[in-house]
Design a binder for these strands. Structure first.
Lengths: 356, 356
DNA sequence: ATGAAAGCGCTAACAA
DNA sequence: TTGTTAGCGCTTTCAT
């Protein structure tokens, strides 16, 4: 391995000059600088980043944790995290956990052991060390921010949407189109966010004076297959629903297929509303009405928050709530959807400033 | 920051003993070991991985490069890379490039600068340093393996499928079901893999004695939207196709929607075959006939190859070709698809042994 | 079984 | 502007 010392020898300068040539070239006399560059080229020298890091306080590296890389909902968030991260000189690495504690802990350890600076969690699973520290009453042992999953906010800043409100919006829309027997396919109910959506569904039914029927609630796990299975269960009931609100687009797509397989029409027999606004949702037959999550803003805001955290600018356990949006397509209203999808909402400008 | 020295002082031992307690506990006398552990716990000591790495030859870390994290095709490959990687003690980090050279180079630099050990490329883009080295006639400057995208095999080992043959399989299936005017929606044609699939399509038409019509070839970019747009173009032609072979499931899903929007039936008016076997493909209406790529085997094999490479076991520029599989669903044959999807094919056992 | 000491490759005072 | 030197936190001989 060729080291800085080899270059120094070859160029006939000190190792300091080599180091400076790489770091503050302006300070080095052009002829020496030239010789150093030449030696580097000739010997094919690449500085050892590990050794560099040993002397640096930070790495400008963040890790984004996704529970499952095959869930397309996270993709756009990640891409927007990257946008802001690169803008600010961070490198971003993605880690997939499959919702397993050991995997998450492994990535979290990279931060504690100084291989990376901070974490953005797209998922509610908490690093063990974080949990341990909090139960011991200690301060947060690592900088992290939660994006789009709720958890105890004592653990770190959150950026979320109003899941309760969004569910109400979706159900209100179904009621407005004339549906009266509205079912819901929930996500895993040990998940706070799913509980919120279910509660919103119930609240809106209650507000509209519609009866609650436990037979109209089916639990899924966010996946395509679980959506289909849940819909099949709902269809098997004695009194068929005339609409279904799904807590994810993936489950809604599964439901769409189950309904088609039963020979029923969407939205004629059953209207369907999803949640997330996945790209695929615009391409189902019929296209899917859904709640659009502000993925771009979620990602950008989360990264800004982490940046602030890493610079010691304290975000006092702050929770940012971003606006959602109902996107109406043909799965909930009859007739061809003539208007194109609404544009994504611009980010609230005040956030931009606060966290710039 | 608490260092190994602090622990040594607190425990009344040398730093060597602390280090050994962590690395080879068996060699340390139990009482001292105990004192060290206690000091560690009391002072909340976490070894600095950067400093550790400085003295270690390897990191047991690999980076998987995906062109776009929102392309679900890569998800299963990545998950299987992780499976084998963890089994063998590697940590895996994912980097997204958006097909941009600078981003790829950034991740590749992590290997040259010794922050990671090797790269698995899910995409054909080549690290600049690799290209430079090869044009200069130098050996590969970093350990990498290509998974599922073809490129000049001089750059490193490949694991691929027979794209030409797979396209022929797909088209042969359409011909067998009675289609005669078969269109194709290709991926970006600067991509070798897409050229292979197009060539396979042409070869099979030729073999069947069917005429080639340039009006039946439309180029897309793998995305949902490009599939819809391409299908619209094909439908606008004077003589409508009775089938379309799409070079990705995403484009096939787009095509499905365009066909439905035109008021045509699948497969009655137009049969559709995709490529990849995305989970979503089983959930379209009708479910999508497709070519299943052996994603599990691709991921596992790629990781095994990289592992071999990192252990200096030379894979002499080797190319592994894995088998694909036609999955017939209702988008290409009338009548309900009664049989469930075929199980994924087991990996060819010889590979397992060769690379174990 | 233990510890002293010599680095790993680099950066950053400090001196010149 | 340049070079000398003292570490960064850790692992690993080599004595003891």
């Amino acid at each position: 391995m060729v080291t800085i010392r080899d270059i120094a020898r070859r160029a006939g300068v000190s190792i300091t000059t080599v180091s400076r040539t790489l770091r503050e070239p302006a300070v080095v006399r052009p002829d020496k600088r030239e010789r150093v560059h030449q030696a580097i080229a000739e010997m094919n020298y690449v500085p050892n980043a590990i050794a560099q890091q040993l002397r640096r306080p930070r790495h400008e590296t963040v890790i984004v944790i996704v529970p499952a890389i095959d869930n397309p909902f996270f993709a756009d968030i990640v891409q927007n995290i990257e946008l802001v991260a690169h803008e600010r000189g961070y490198r971003v690495l993605i880690g997939e956990t499959q919702s397993r504690q050991d995997r998450l802990d492994h990535y979290a350890d990279m931060v504690t052991t100084r291989l990376a600076d901070g974490l953005i969690l797209l998922g509610a699973l908490l690093p063990s060390q974080m949990r341990d520290a909090r139960t011991a009453g200690l301060p947060a042992p690592l900088p992290l921010v939660f994006a789009c999953e709720r958890s105890d906010s004592a653990y770190g800043p959150h950026v979320v949407i109003d899941n309760h409100g969004a569910a109400r919006t979706a159900v209100a829309h179904l009621i407005a189109t004339g549906c009266r027997r509205i079912a819901t396919i929930t996500g895993p109910l040990d998940n706070l966010l799913c509980q919120d959506r279910l509660a919103g569904y119930r609240a809106e039914l209650a507000a509209a004076g519609l009866p609650q029927d436990p037979a109209l609630v089916a639990e899924g796990d966010f996946s395509l297959g679980s959506g289909r299975a849940a819909m099949l269960r709902l269809l098997a009931g004695a009194d068929r629903p005339d609409a279904v609100f799904c807590a994810s687009d993936q489950m809604a797509i599964g439901a769409l297929q189950a309904i088609a397989a039963a020979g029923l029409a969407v939205p004629g027999d059953i209207a369907v509303v999803g949640f997330d606004d996945l790209p695929f949702g615009a391409f189902t037959v019929p296209p899917l009405t859904t709640i659009r999550q502000p993925t771009a803003a979620i990602g950008a805001t989360a990264m800004r928050m982490l940046d602030a955290l890493l610079h010691g600018r304290d975000l006092p356990e702050r929770t940012v709530v971003l606006p959602h949006q109902l996107v109406v397509r043909a799965s909930s209203v009859a007739g061809p959807p003539l208007a194109p999808d609404p544009p994504a909402q611009p980010e609230p400008p005040d956030r931009q400033e606060t966290l710039a």
